[in-house]
Design a protein around this nucleic acid. Structure first.
Length: 105
DNA sequence: ATCGTGACGAACG
DNA sequence: CCGTTCGCCACGA
């Protein structure tokens, strides 16, 4: 309706994350202009699992602690890790990603 | 319009 | 460091 929906804004930003880099939901929210909508950002990315024909690199968004954020969906979590490793991202032994090295921006 | 939901995050204790 | 609580938000029933 409004020229650009919240979801669209999220996707536009996520598409800018370069391969081999990651950012957090909160970070995307800040770039959006809504610092407090981190939760909604996750909600927006969740909507992609049904139809991601635009090939939005959803895997490049993790939580602020540097971990993959999936509670029950282990299938998605494993897929995300696999995709990221394929891009060259290295996980610590505790499954954490170092923003100092792979963080974007 | 109201309410429950969830791929968040910061603050507590 | 760890679990819990609480605030925030877009969405859909």
């Amino acid at each position: 309706m409004n020229g650009e929906s919240f979801y669209t804004k999220v996707y536009e930003i996520v598409k800018k994350i370069p391969s081999g880099k990651v950012t957090s939901y909160g970070r995307v929210a800040i770039i959006l202009g809504n610092p407090r909508s981190a939760r909604a950002v996750g909600y927006a990315l969740n909507a992609l699992k049904k139809d991601n024909t635009q090939e939005i690199p959803w895997q490049r968004v993790i939580n602020s602690k540097g971990f993959i954020s999936f509670k029950g969906d282990t299938f998605r979590a494993n897929l995300q890790r696999k995709l990221l490793e394929k891009e060259g991202i290295v996980f610590h032994s505790d499954a954490r990603i170092d923003f100092k090295i792979f963080g974007w921006p």
